[in-house]
Amino acid sequence: MTTQAEKAAVGRLGEDLAVELLTSQGWRVLRRNWRSPVRECPGELDVVAVDPDGAVVVVEVRTRRGSACGTALESVTPGKVRRLRRLFAAWWSSLPPDDRGPRGAGARIDVVAVQLAPGAVPQLEHVRGVG
């Protein structure tokens, strides 16, 4: 059985790998692990970043060590996307207006799926615009 500490370590590794991937492609990370202070909108955004085109992107990182419970991408359900949209709006509204950047650059939700296997190089898949 996997402990909470082991799950947290796997999740942290996946997020670190995802951030390495994004920054190597010219992305600028604005925030990691932002937790909503709004009781009516609980949850966490894994990564908030700006892509090379200037769009603000919430990146959901899903890390798996196997596929017995489905793939990392399959775990991003329509309900999860709705929750991410609400969290994105809460994060955005928490910013002072001067920190919101230029208008018109766009915003979206992406997923980085990280597949880990013993003795193998981690596999990362970046899916843009899931919501």
Rank of each mutant, 00 (worst) to 15 (best):
R64L: 07
L124M: 06
D16S: 15
W27F: 14
T71Q: 11
A113Y: 04
S75N: 14
Q115F: 11
L30D: 03
A105D: 06
K80N: 12
K7M: 09
T23S: 12
F88Y: 12
A68D: 10
W91R: 02
V48D: 01
V48K: 00
P122K: 00
L124P: 08
R82G: 13
V57M: 09
K7P: 04
D51T: 04
L17D: 00
A9G: 00
C69I: 07
T23I: 11
D46V: 01
G14E: 05
T2A: 11
D51W: 04
K7D: 14
V59Y: 13
S67H: 14
T23L: 05
L87N: 03
V61S: 09
R86T: 12
V47W: 06
P97S: 07
G70I: 12
V29R: 01
C41I: 15
W27G: 00
G104R: 08
V127F: 09
W91M: 04
L124W: 03
R12W: 08
C69E: 14
R85T: 11
K7Y: 13
V112L: 07
K80E: 15
V81I: 15
V50K: 06
G129Q: 08
E44W: 02
K80R: 15
A68K: 11
P42T: 02
S36W: 05
R86D: 13
D99N: 13
R65M: 11
A113K: 10
R85Q: 15
G106Y: 04
L73S: 13
P96E: 14
R12E: 13
A113N: 09
A107Y: 01
E74W: 08
W27E: 02
M1P: 09
L30P: 03
S94I: 02
V76E: 03
A5L: 15
V76I: 15
G14Q: 03
A9E: 15
A90H: 05
L95Y: 04
P96W: 11
G79Y: 05
R64W: 08
R128N: 06
V19H: 10
S93P: 00
E6H: 10
A8V: 09
S67C: 03
S67T: 14
P52R: 01
V38C: 00
G106I: 01
G70L: 06
V112N: 03
G129H: 07
G26I: 04
